[in-house]
């Protein structure tokens, strides 16, 4: 117990932070005339410490995948600051950016699509090593076997020469995870790692990611639209709505005491296993998520909100208020 807390105490330093991060896509007509921009990520800030997981939850089209890509360096931020492992990421050149990317593992949603169908598992896992020229051939071979064992695709011989289509969805996702850790990253971005998988293997995959996180003291950014699995696999949650964070806190705080009206709606919509469901209808806020091309004025949730304060919510964007230590919420209901 003591040992753990000491270890935590020592390594509890910030691994990744984003400050006022904005990623905008410009829409151009004929590749030239600017006709507008999609603000997919619009002023997002968070911090992640080593060995911890932050879950970013939101509906499709809220900008959470763009946030993931920005963190990975696949999209360039329009504004804001990114720090990884004590280094500022803004303004890196192409080569530095490439080496930065290889230090962050990436787990994608669709495991079959995430694996080149014409490569064997061995080749898939060697690719990052070859590209980043890490070590000799022998070392590479050893590392490939090592990660396969780590994601429990054992005996390794049964899997190493297979093509992705010969594996089940869960096994494919394990290969994706193996690839994400083959470069020994310190941060893993998991973008909906289980939403395409069968319900019965979802927990297995989450347990695997959790296990790797503990073994290597990794930071994990877990992006999902499904809150039901969050409790056991994450420390922090950020609820994203319309390209902004609506609420950000520790898992327990949010699950037990959600503040933002959107978080509340989201939590009540999570399916629960209860035979009584057959007769009861769920409360769902009316309307649809906002367009990121023309977001609503003021608070982006106000057209769907039950607690709208007329003249305020529809005019001015709410600031992030700290309702409790470590629990911030962007809602005028909690202004001080």
């Amino acid at each position: 117990m003591l040992a753990v807390s000491v270890r935590r105490g020592v390594e509890n330093k910030i691994l990744f932070s984003a400050k006022d991060l904005c990623t905008w896509f410009e829409l151009r007509r004929w590749g030239f005339f600017r006709v507008g921009s999609v603000k997919a990520v619009d002023g997002v800030s968070f911090e992640l410490r080593r060995g911890e997981t932050i879950t970013i939850v939101g509906e499709s089209g809220c900008g959470k995948s763009t946030l993931a890509k920005t963190i990975l360096g696949l999209c360039l931020p329009a504004r804001g600051e990114l720090n990884f492992d004590g280094k500022r990421l803004n303004g890196l050149n192409t080569r530095q950016m490439r080496s930065h990317r290889s230090k962050i593992g990436y787990i994608q949603q669709d495991p079959y699509g995430a694996l080149p169908p014409f490569m064997t598992v061995r080749r898939i896992l060697e690719e990052p090593l070859r590209i980043n020229k890490t070590g000799k051939k022998e070392e590479m071979k050893r590392r490939v076997r090592e990660v396969l064992a780590e994601v429990k695709l054992t005996p390794v011989e049964d899997f190493i020469d297979k093509f992705p289509h010969m594996l089940s969805g869960g096994q494919q996702q394990r290969v994706v995870i193996a690839r994400s850790i083959v470069m020994k990253p310190r941060l893993i971005v998991a973008d909906e790692p289980i939403s395409m998988l069968d319900a019965s293997v979802r927990i297995e995959i989450l347990e695997l990611i959790r296990g790797l996180q503990h073994a290597h003291n990794l930071g994990v950014i877990y992006i999902t639209h499904d809150l039901s699995t969050v409790r056991h696999f994450s420390e922090h949650i950020a609820v994203m709505y319309g390209a902004k964070f609506a609420e950000k806190a520790k898992v327990k705080d949010i699950l037990d005491n959600p503040l933002h009206p959107y978080t509340r709606a989201l939590l009540s919509a999570v399916p629960k296993l209860d035979p009584a469901n057959v007769t009861t209808f769920k409360e769902v806020p009316p309307g649809e998520p906002p367009s990121l091309l023309k977001p609503p004025s003021g608070c982006r949730f106000h057209p769907r909100c039950y607690a709208i304060i007329k003249g305020l919510c529809d005019v001015e964007s709410p600031l992030e208020f700290e309702a409790k230590k470590g629990h911030s919420v962007a809602c005028w209901l909690y202004r001080k």
Binding site: G73, Y106, Q108, Q109, L115, P116, P117, V176, R179, M183
Partner: peptide, 17 residues
């Protein structure tokens, strides 16, 4: 647009690769 291309980009594959 396939995810595996994005993944390759993420682990640093060059354009021609």
């Amino acid at each position: 647009g396939m995810p595996y291309i994005e993944a390759a980009k993420a682990y640093g594959a060059s354009n021609f690769r």
